[in-house]
Computed example of a mutant assay.
Amino acid sequence: MVDEGDTAPEFTAPVATGDVESITLSDAVADGPVVLAFFPGAFTSVCTAEMCSFRDRLSAFEDVDATVYGVSTDSPFSLNEFRAQNDLSFGLVSDHEKDIIDAYDVRTSFDHIGLHGLAKRAVFVLDSDRTITYAWVSDDPSVEPDYDEVATAADAAD
Results as ranks from 00 to 15, higher is better:
Met1Trp: 08
Asp3Cys: 02
Asp3Gln: 15
Gly5Met: 11
Asp6Asn: 08
Thr7Val: 13
Ala13His: 11
Ala13Tyr: 05
Pro14Trp: 01
Val15Lys: 12
Ala16Gly: 04
Gly18Trp: 08
Gly18Arg: 13
Asp19Gln: 14
Glu21Phe: 01
Ile23Asn: 10
Ile23Lys: 05
Thr24Trp: 04
Leu25Val: 02
Ser26Ala: 14
Ala30Cys: 09
Asp31Lys: 01
Gly32Ala: 10
Val34Thr: 09
Leu36Gln: 10
Phe38Glu: 07
Phe38Pro: 01
Phe39Leu: 11
Gly41Met: 11
Phe43Val: 11
Thr44Ile: 06
Cys47Asp: 11
Thr48Ile: 06
Ala49Met: 14
Ala49Gly: 13
Met51His: 07
Met51Trp: 05
Ser53Ala: 12
Arg55Leu: 09
Leu58Ser: 13
Ser59Glu: 13
Phe61His: 08
Glu62Ile: 00
Ala66Pro: 12
Thr67Pro: 07
Ser75Ile: 02
Pro76Lys: 02
Phe77Val: 15
Ser78Trp: 04
Ser78Leu: 10
Asp87Phe: 03
Leu88Gly: 12
Leu88Asn: 08
Leu88His: 06
Ser89Phe: 00
Ser89Glu: 15
Phe90Thr: 06
Gly91Phe: 00
Leu92Tyr: 00
Asp95Glu: 10
Glu97Tyr: 02
Lys98Cys: 09
Asp102Gly: 12
Ala103Asp: 15
Tyr104Gly: 05
Asp105Trp: 01
Phe110Asn: 10
Phe110Arg: 15
Asp111Ile: 08
Asp111Trp: 03
Ile113Cys: 06
Arg121Met: 00
Ala122Trp: 00
Ala122Thr: 02
Phe124Gly: 06
Val125Gln: 06
Asp127Phe: 03
Asp127Gln: 09
Ile132Trp: 04
Tyr134Ala: 01
Ala135Ile: 09
Val137Ile: 14
Val137Asn: 12
Ser138Glu: 08
Ser138Lys: 03
Asp139Arg: 05
Pro141Arg: 01
Tyr147Glu: 10
Glu149Met: 03
Thr152Gly: 11
